[in-house]
Amino acid sequence: MSISFLTRPTSEEVVGRVWEALRTVRDPELDTDVVSLDFVASVEIDSADGSGRVARVSLRLPTYFCAPNFAFLMVADAWDAVSGVEGLTDVEVTLIDHFASDAINAGVAARAGFVHSMAGTEVGEAVSELHELRRTFTERALMAGTDLVVRPMMREGTTPEQVAAMTLGEAPASDDLRRLRARRRELGIPAGDDDPLVVDPSGRTVGVEALPLHLRKARSYQVGVDANTSICRGQLAVRYGL
């Protein structure tokens, strides 16, 4: 008979798991995780009182006036992601150096939602929750991802007719293709090997006649993401002396 023992993860192991969890949290506009963007200022594990391990995560943004709706999404997503880490008894996620940080931090901690969190604050009233905003930027990420997958193939000589008829399983494997599949799944769009490669944000297949305009739009979204990412990285570096 074999006996197995469950060992408590070390603090270092828990810290590593927290960082990995944070890699699933994205800036909705840039479609890049907050760790890669250097938006995570610190991760600490506090177990001083002996009652358990508390993860304390600090997030920072490129400017004091970054949009509060985007900031709220990232703080809330970070809270959700880190809460799923094994070995923790509690989670604190704090946005620092931001004009709406008090309202955002309190609202996320209370799981109050964006509208309730902004109500009665000097930040301003929120009109609605952020589900539609999240979907809008996921749709833009889908378009930008299409550019990243299709443009290299067309540079290598793949014709529009071939692209329009291609399935996901026929496209060259890459990190960009994996990310494109992930965004499709988030939008409820089929992302199997036999599903068409190029679809619009509603999931409709894009035929060869509509393909040129669709790819121009996709390219414009990716150019915008690249430009905004560069600006944000530069602002963050200047702000925090990175």
Rank of each mutant, 00 (worst) to 15 (best):
L59A: 03
A103T: 00
S58W: 07
W79Q: 12
A81S: 13
E20C: 06
G234E: 11
L187N: 03
T7R: 15
G157R: 07
V25M: 06
G234R: 10
C66V: 02
S128D: 14
N228L: 15
V82Y: 09
T158C: 12
G188A: 13
A144M: 12
E13D: 12
V93W: 02
V43Q: 02
E122D: 12
G207H: 04
G224N: 06
V14E: 02
D77K: 09
R60Q: 12
G188M: 04
T146S: 02
L59S: 03
A173P: 02
R134D: 01
A41I: 00
M118L: 05
S47F: 06
Q162K: 14
T7D: 15
A182P: 02
M153G: 03
F114D: 08
P9C: 00
V85L: 13
L130T: 13
N69Y: 04
R183Q: 09
S47I: 00
V35M: 04
T7A: 15
V15Y: 02
E12F: 00
E86L: 01
R181E: 13
E156Y: 01
I189C: 04
I104F: 05
A191V: 02
G188S: 10
T158Y: 12
T229N: 01
I104N: 05
I231S: 11
A141D: 08
Q162E: 15
E129P: 05
D147Q: 15
S83M: 08
L180T: 04
L211E: 03
L215E: 09
F39N: 02
G16I: 04
A21P: 01
T136R: 14
A171Y: 04
L73M: 13
R155M: 10
S128G: 13
M74L: 03
F39S: 05
R134T: 13
E86V: 00
G84D: 07
G52D: 11
T146V: 09
V25H: 06
V123I: 09
L177A: 09
D200K: 07
Y240Q: 07
A227Y: 13
G16M: 08
S128C: 11
A67M: 12
A112F: 00
I45A: 04
L215Q: 04
A171T: 05
I104D: 01
M74D: 00
T32F: 01
T89M: 03
S4Q: 15
T63S: 05
K217M: 14
E13A: 14
S83R: 14
C66T: 07
G87D: 11
E86W: 00
P152L: 03
A227M: 12
G52M: 02
L95D: 10
T146A: 03
T158D: 07
T121N: 06
M1I: 04
A110K: 03
W19R: 11
L59K: 09
I45Y: 06
T205E: 15
R23I: 08
V14L: 10
S230M: 08
V15E: 14
T136E: 14
